[in-house]
Amino acid sequence: MLGNSSENKPPFADYNTKLFIKKSGEVYRNPTQVQMSQIVLPCHANHCGELSVGQLLKWMDSTACLSAERHSGVSCVTASVDDINFEHTIEVGKVVNITAKVNRAFTSSMEVGILVMCEDLYTSHQWKVCRAFATFVARRTEAGKVQLKQVIPHTQMEQMEYSLAAERRRMRLIHAEIITDLLSCKCQTQEYKDAVPAERTRVESVELVLPPHANHQVSTFGGQIMAWMENVATIAAR
């Protein structure tokens, strides 16, 4: 994660560049959109005094899950999250604004777009921290597998994200196949001078799932698991 920026941008600019007015005169608001605002407290910070990435991932996952459930009408689980590039760190005292909305629904899965903005309440400056795309799957009900209703894009941005969602889904499937092929092949490793043995970086963590680790479905969720993974990866990297 890089240093902070004072770039002043309107909140959620990537999603709401233009207002869409309905024929009734009402301002259109995406029915699947969920917004969450959190002020960063010391308990959310890491050893560097900045917002822990694991904590941010938990907030992002929770917001996206609510968006998916708002669209599907049933409980949903995180299937995957695309690569995330964090552009800035977030200091204690700043406000994190997270917006999530369903870009496109398929049979029983859907893509949820997530935008994270950081806000300085005293200067009114806001800047983008990251964007991400998560795939959620609707849980089966007593009636069987859920058939999701389609998303109807209204704004130009929604139409673009709707089209790109299908391409991103195709790329995810190809990426999974490539990783499987790479893991199945026996690649020769090259020796480097003064290299650190991989075993020295090995870190293991055993976590007991407690009530604070559960979400509104009373189970461990993707964001909590990603937070645990981030902690272990940080130790390995250091």
Rank of each mutant, 00 (worst) to 15 (best):
51 L>R: 01
235 I>H: 13
113 G>C: 07
103 N>R: 06
17 T>C: 13
205 S>I: 13
55 Q>F: 00
117 M>C: 06
159 Q>N: 11
64 A>L: 05
77 V>G: 02
82 D>Q: 02
111 E>I: 02
152 I>H: 10
150 Q>I: 06
39 I>H: 07
122 Y>V: 09
195 A>Y: 10
69 E>F: 02
155 T>C: 08
140 R>D: 15
124 S>Q: 07
63 T>W: 02
202 R>H: 15
25 G>P: 00
235 I>W: 08
118 C>F: 00
110 M>P: 01
234 T>G: 08
196 V>E: 11
158 E>K: 00
156 Q>I: 13
40 V>F: 03
134 A>V: 05
119 E>S: 11
187 C>Y: 12
72 S>W: 05
175 H>R: 13
92 V>T: 08
50 E>S: 09
18 K>I: 11
205 S>E: 15
77 V>D: 03
25 G>N: 08
65 C>P: 03
132 A>I: 06
59 W>L: 07
113 G>L: 05
222 G>I: 03
9 K>M: 12
220 T>G: 11
94 K>V: 02
238 R>C: 12
183 L>G: 15
135 T>H: 03
174 I>D: 15
26 E>N: 12
105 A>K: 03
217 Q>R: 13
112 V>C: 04
83 D>P: 07
220 T>S: 14
54 G>K: 05
70 R>H: 06
124 S>T: 06
78 T>Y: 04
216 H>R: 13
69 E>D: 09
102 V>W: 00
62 S>I: 03
137 V>D: 06
68 A>R: 04
36 M>P: 05
236 A>I: 06
172 R>V: 06
238 R>V: 08
146 V>S: 03
67 S>N: 05
12 F>V: 08
170 R>F: 12
203 V>P: 09
95 V>R: 00
25 G>R: 04
128 K>V: 05
13 A>V: 04
23 K>Y: 08
